[in-house]
């Protein structure tokens, strides 16, 4: 929902997508305190995600995971000059209204929190603040964009430190786009029907040869090599959640992952920056997770 003020307009699609374009080639880091936010900014993060618990802890603690305390988010916003994102539960449009009211720069309608609605997502065009949403495949991505998401991230499996699902979801989305590009026009409507996506967005994606918004990777990225792997697969940037502040030397690892996203195509530099980073986060093999504990399946 854009707002006109004299000659100028806020909340337009172009400024929503535009901020995501400014974040490209960067790393967005999960932080739970102003001190961590400062470490992330000093390490070169292009934005931070303010939340009360990183996904690894949400997983360990169980229970209901909700929007973070707005006071805590506000303190993080007061500490850093880079953009601050925060998470709302799937379908919880009032949490989103609260996050918009305190002025966060992006809202993540996130499967990492416990869903508030098991059938519907937030109608994101109603907001001035832009939204990022998770996806596992092209249909899910285009449904979210249809609802107004101005940025996507492939979901991966948050809080595991296992990159396998991030790879699966990025390959699925990008592979479906490649398939779409070689498809004759008469097959597009049936393809749109089969993946449950708006036809106009299917056509636009085919014409662009990519998603019609910026697309980052998320969920399980723990090393500079993981980050560069996702970049080489074709995403525009990465989210790192538990992978930084659950590791032995967060500042050093955060900085190395930032360097890896810039120089993702240069193995010599990747080798140099991967040296002596200390202990990575302790991972959970996604295959050992029972299905009800997998976060990526949340989203409709």
């Amino acid at each position: 929902m854009s707002t006109q003020n004299g000659n100028s307009q806020t909340g337009t699609w172009r400024v929503k997508v535009g901020l995501a374009q400014m974040l490209k080639g960067g790393v967005i880091m999960d932080v739970v305190t102003p001190e961590q936010a400062k470490i992330a900014e000093d390490a070169g993060a292009c934005a931070v995600m303010a939340l009360e618990r990183v996904p690894a802890d949400i997983r360990a603690d169980g229970g209901v995971a909700r929007m973070s305390d707005p006071g805590m988010i506000q303190r993080i916003m007061d500490t850093v000059s880079i953009p601050v994102m925060a998470k709302a539960r799937i379908g919880h449009f009032v949490e989103a209204q609260i996050l918009e009211a305190i002025g966060v720069d992006y809202i993540d309608e996130s499967e990492v929190l416990t869903p508030a609605d098991e059938a519907h997502h937030i109608y994101k065009h109603n907001f001035n603040v832009p939204f990022v949403c998770g996806c596992r495949n092209l249909g899910e991505a285009l449904r979210r964009i249809g609802e107004g998401a101005a940025m996507m991230r492939t979901k991966g499996e948050a809080g595991t430190g296992d990159v396998v699902e991030a790879v699966r979801h990025a390959r699925t989305v990008l592979g479906e786009i490649r398939r779409l590009q070689t498809m004759p026009e008469e097959e597009l409507m049936t393809f749109a029907k089969s993946i449950g996506a708006p036809y106009e967005l299917v056509k636009e994606t085919r014409d662009l040869g990519r998603l019609p918004v910026v697309n980052f990777a998320a969920g399980g990225i723990a090393t500079p090599a993981d980050a560069a792997l996702m970049m080489q697969l074709g995403v525009d940037g990465v989210f790192v959640g538990s992978g930084i502040f659950k590791s032995g030397d967060p500042a050093k690892r955060a900085n190395a992952i930032v360097q890896a996203v810039t120089h993702f195509n240069d193995p010599k530099i990747l080798a140099e920056i991967s040296k002596d980073l200390g202990e990575p986060m302790v991972g959970i093999n996604v295959r050992s997770l029972p299905e009800e504990e997998q976060l990526a399946t949340r989203g409709w």
Partner: peptide, 8 residues
């Protein structure tokens, strides 16, 4: 902040 980003 971002909610104040605009076109003119």
């Amino acid at each position: 902040r971002q909610v104040d980003s605009f076109e003119a």
